[in-house]
Design a protein around this nucleic acid. Sequence first.
DNA 1: AATAATTATTGTTAATTTGACAATAATTAT
DNA 2: ATAATTATTGTCAAATTAACAATAATTATT
Lengths: 236, 236
Amino acid sequence: MHKTLASAQIHVAVDLMIVTVRDGKMAVLLSRRPQAPCAGCWALPGHLLPLEESAETAAESLLREMLPIDGAYREQLFTFTDVSRDPRGRVISIAYLVLVPWQRLEGCLTREEVKLACFTVCDDAKQSALVGPETILLDGPQLAFDHGQIIRTGIRRLQGKISYTDVGFHFLQSTDAFSLRELQMIFEAVLGEEMDKSNFRRSILARYETTGHISQTEDIQKSGRGRPAVLYRYIP
Amino acid sequence: MHKTLASAQIHVAVDLMIVTVRDGKMAVLLSRRPQAPCAGCWALPGHLLPLEESAETAAESLLREMLPIDGAYREQLFTFTDVSRDPRGRVISIAYLVLVPWQRLEGCLTREEVKLACFTVCDDAKQSALVGPETILLDGPQLAFDHGQIIRTGIRRLQGKISYTDVGFHFLQSTDAFSLRELQMIFEAVLGEEMDKSNFRRSILARYETTGHISQTEDIQKSGRGRPAVLYRYIP
DNA sequence: AATAATTATTGTTAATTTGACAATAATTAT
DNA sequence: ATAATTATTGTCAAATTAACAATAATTATT
């Protein structure tokens, strides 16, 4: 057992699963652990819950400390409490799901390159895996603690919620100017399946435009081949 | 600050929201707190998480210790971590949702009458309230700690899941012999709205009978006026 | 015994939603 | 100019939903 933790009490950690959509795939932010336990393994960012902070604010400040990002969508994911999930002693983890547009995350990663790496989540025949510079199985030994289980839980949560909530919108680079194609690529990345363009447009507009949560802007998309797309604005 | 808790650490509690459906209404199991803090208030059953148990098994053994009920459906609800949720010090609560058929709960309550009371959840113009011998508002001072918030979270969880999962079946007196009307009354109690008999039957059978999760039994309902109902069996 | 009342079950029909595709429009690349 | 590309609109049958109506099997009442 590790020396830095008192052994006769339960320690509470807050871990973040920071998710983005890059290149048509979900991606999770991980950092390589420099020391034992699990030295060299990839881990979700986290730290012990301060005595005078709620998990909610602790997650918020941990996020701010890691990335200069404000107002990212965040929700409590699950609390992991297996007795032997941490070899140092009894540590439970309150995991939070954080959604960040790739374009905002991208800039941050180059600055702390050494500690951060970003991997793509694939849905490889029900066996989710992380690939990047290396390939890492979610239930393999290269992920620290039970972080593979946390990630799987987060993926399921996102997949379950994207069709009937607005979580997908939080991956948009700008909620003030996005194309329906951009939103569709987010849905496809999260669900891991292609969707019909026409039907997707219809269901999104039926759900959000008629209720006033989405409206067309004057602008159209500049770059790219083909007919330029109308840009929309999302109003929560 | 209370003396029984060390002040320089975070304590972890496991609380149970034991829900049933009685008389067409949801009901939550509460016990009156005998001592401070919140003496005399109604509270969800709970205790501190033992060092050597996961929250999952702690919830299970706490349940068994309170009620002689085996195999009740249970899921982690949410972890409540507000800094000042407990006046004794820093206590976070991992709340679990437990679903029990009223007929099984009924017998247990008489035996520990002093400590347990069962209240009905009403949906009174968006202001949920508990009524029974007394009337208690969910956000009033008669509920201990943040237990009103926990209950509200549990109600929302149930309402959100009942239409697309099988949680409703766990309120059935017997999953081996139930009528569709009995199941419908559970749905109506959880959702707080009446449903069309014919359409309810159709949607349930379409979802569960065609997939083999529900099948007709040879039996029919004995008691009651009117045409006796066919009894079904639920196979998870 | 006959009739009413009650509850379960089945049936009907229009409206809406969904799924799969085709057609058209506006742009860039050749 | 023409092809290729992408966005947008349109179509149409199938499936689902919502709101009711009708029938069936039982108990309660006269």
